[in-house]
Design a protein around this nucleic acid. Sequence first.
DNA 1: CACCGCTGTGACATCGATTACCTCGTCCGG
DNA 2: CCGGACGAGGTAATCGATGTCACAGCGGTG
Lengths: 332, 332
Amino acid sequence: MKAPRPRLRDVAEAAQTSTKTASRVINGDVRVSASTRARVEQAVVDLGYRPDPLARSLRLGQDETIGVVVDEVGDPFFASVIGEIERMALDRGVSVIIASTRRLAERERIVLDGLLQRRVAGLIIASISDTHAYLRTSPCPLVFIDRAAEDLAADAVVVDDRGGARMAIEHLMRHGHRRIAYIGDRLDTATARYRLAGYRDALEAAGIAPDEDLVAEVEPAKGDAGVAAETLLRLANPPTAIFSANTRCSLGTLPTVHRLRRTDIGFVSFGDFAMADTITPAITIIEHSPELIGRLAAERLFSRLAGEDPPVETILAPLRVVPRGSGELGPA
Amino acid sequence: MKAPRPRLRDVAEAAQTSTKTASRVINGDVRVSASTRARVEQAVVDLGYRPDPLARSLRLGQDETIGVVVDEVGDPFFASVIGEIERMALDRGVSVIIASTRRLAERERIVLDGLLQRRVAGLIIASISDTHAYLRTSPCPLVFIDRAAEDLAADAVVVDDRGGARMAIEHLMRHGHRRIAYIGDRLDTATARYRLAGYRDALEAAGIAPDEDLVAEVEPAKGDAGVAAETLLRLANPPTAIFSANTRCSLGTLPTVHRLRRTDIGFVSFGDFAMADTITPAITIIEHSPELIGRLAAERLFSRLAGEDPPVETILAPLRVVPRGSGELGPA
DNA sequence: CACCGCTGTGACATCGATTACCTCGTCCGG
DNA sequence: CCGGACGAGGTAATCGATGTCACAGCGGTG
């Protein structure tokens, strides 16, 4: 009963021409006479023809699809990034395949490999790994987000992690803090290393001797940020302020801070989150907009897909301190 | 320099056999002699052969990909749902294409059409539209989430919206509230209608006359939930409690409630969110786990893709009140 | 007038994998 | 000893669109 979807061949037959000419019309080739063009266009409408993207991809050796690889799709930061990328892709009729690495270099390999096998047209990657040799001959444009690829000349959209962390610490110091704790990601990601470096920069510049007891390296997915916070706050000589180096650490740490009724402590979060301005005290943040990062990355990728070939660049998304209260509390 | 990726033909040649036999080995056909099988397998390893998914899809008329269509990828609820689906898909080597409708029925049509054109193997859909006639002859299994398709016999994973809303209102009434406001989504989505119905059920069962001034229908994406909350709280005869019918409304409403220093008001949110248990007072919620919904939907879809054919079913994900403070405040 | 170049067109190969259909032995029962 | 079932494997068509290349017709040119 149900008619199978029309093929190019059917269109060609209806228009009394060859598939090649029909293909020309559809792809906007100029060298087709007006009358033939009209017949084909009519046939397309009559039959409701739509080219099969699969066949097209096979022939062209490339899929009208981009891949986005992030740590974890459910992470609010990446969810917003992806949302923005998807928005831009949809406008261009491009599909978005997403994949998450769970912060495992091995999985990253696997999903990237799969995406490349599928011949995606381009990739946006929040890489967890620090070796990308196998991407050096990538057949498609790559844009890194959140963390640049250090061993690869590829576009990246990042924030000034080191400078941002330093800004956060200096902000706390301006409000009188001298003992400031750091809670951040595992140091096997570059982002975490840079932010920790920024923290140390600021302390050193202020002539404060670093205290390793105040540096906690955690795995936010495991929920151990809260444990780290509790440990810090129970030290014999506890910090008067905490710097949380990313959103998920903040989300893990703050419930503990509140449970222990230590809302008197100074707090700055690298990255915003829902309700940050509503809890008491409201949380001072280093703001970096995931939507902006997504947009910049997608723009870059689409411009390359459109054939433009600007020099490889690492784009810095802007960063600023948004004081809301928790970062302006002085030490006891 | 760079060798092109090996094709099945290369494998066949290396194993001194035909593509057909090589294909049989790869697809696990039993009727291949042990020695031939071994040769082919060796060749596959030697050449690092990986079948081209595009070609395979074309031939099979189906892509090893599932589509997930939601309101908005950046929405925390859907982000978690997608995260869980992606997790399950990756385990099966299936890719996930995401698309968002922005709550526009027209866009929903477009993205679904695109996905169907791509011949996805299956679809998971949070539908915004209420006509799905064009999906009736869908070539692939469908699973609806969050909202069932009323005009289509298809699987769905939903929560008991009406009952859940009723639970929320009854909870507030048990703590003495009689004037309870409702803030929820536009009523052109079924979910919103059910939740509002549940709200009305509860009031009616308690013999409370409904007051339409207390019902606000908003568009959370536009940020007008906060405006609605302010309007409600400034009424001559204001409510003593607010029921927020979904997470995004809660995220929009609560900053306003706090800004107006009206944290004395009763509050229940349909749907959890980050920091809900950390703000003061902590927010009482109707809990429905997005991860669970994602998992159930994905399980259903994969079971159909595996050829199982259970009767079409609407699965109810469980729901419960999680009291945290804001829902247990009595009226002034 | 022969030749050149340009335009519009179509037959056919191609992308890489799957499959309908066929061939060739071999082994078995009758 | 023969027919036929069966196992193993090969040939070529197929999926649907696009690239290659050749060709016909036409106008201009030396």
